[in-house]
Amino acid sequence: MAKYLVCGKYIGDGVKGLLNEGGTSRRSEIEKLVASLGGKVECVYYAFGEYDIYGIMDMPDSTVMVAFSLRAAASGLVTVKSVALLTPEEIDEAAKRTGEYRAPGVNWLP
């Protein structure tokens, strides 16, 4: 499974819905949607600032993560941003892989 940080911002009547239903109710709905897509919610937190809600989710793949985002955003009451999370071991593995690349305007390769 792939791990994602999900950031959401309630807009318009979405804020009113949160006030009426409460945070635990919205968390339950998120957990239901994620489970219906074959994923698992690790945690959900509310915050103030750029985003209203944050979650860490394990999803089968990026297509499933997009399905989650589309379903939530289709309501028109929340915007969703997702960020793929990588473990230090995955970064180690990526660092071992090499490829040929020349930066624009650079005539040498490190």
Rank of each mutant, 00 (worst) to 15 (best):
E50D: 07
A103V: 09
K96Q: 11
G23C: 05
G23L: 08
E93I: 12
V64M: 15
D13C: 01
Y10T: 06
V66R: 15
A47R: 09
D61F: 10
E100V: 11
L70V: 15
L37E: 05
E50W: 07
V44Y: 02
E21V: 06
V41A: 10
K9V: 00
K3Y: 04
G55H: 11
T63P: 00
R97K: 15
L70Q: 14
L19Q: 03
T87A: 13
T87L: 10
A2Q: 04
S28I: 08
K81E: 05
S69N: 04
V34H: 01
T24P: 01
E42G: 06
Y54W: 09
V44R: 01
A84V: 11
S28L: 12
S28W: 02
P88T: 05
W108A: 00
R26E: 12
D58N: 13
A35Q: 13
E50H: 10
C7F: 01
A95R: 12
E93L: 15
E93H: 07
T63V: 12
V64A: 14
D52W: 05
E31L: 01
K16H: 13
I30K: 03
G49W: 11
D58A: 07
R71C: 14
A95T: 04
E29C: 01
N107L: 06
E89N: 04
I11Q: 11
V106E: 02
L109K: 02
I56P: 03
L70G: 14
V80P: 07
D61R: 15
G23D: 01
G17Q: 13
G8C: 14
L86H: 03
P110H: 08
D58G: 08
G49N: 14
R97P: 00
L86T: 11
D13H: 13
G23F: 11
V44F: 06
R102P: 02
D61N: 14
A103I: 08
T63S: 08
V34E: 00
K40L: 04
V64Y: 06
C7Q: 08
L5Y: 03
T79Y: 07
K9T: 07
A67G: 02
S75N: 05
L18Y: 10
E31M: 03
E31N: 04
S69T: 05
T79N: 14
A94R: 12
P88K: 09
I30H: 04
L77W: 04
D58R: 10
I11G: 08
D92K: 03
P110I: 04
L19Y: 04
R71W: 14
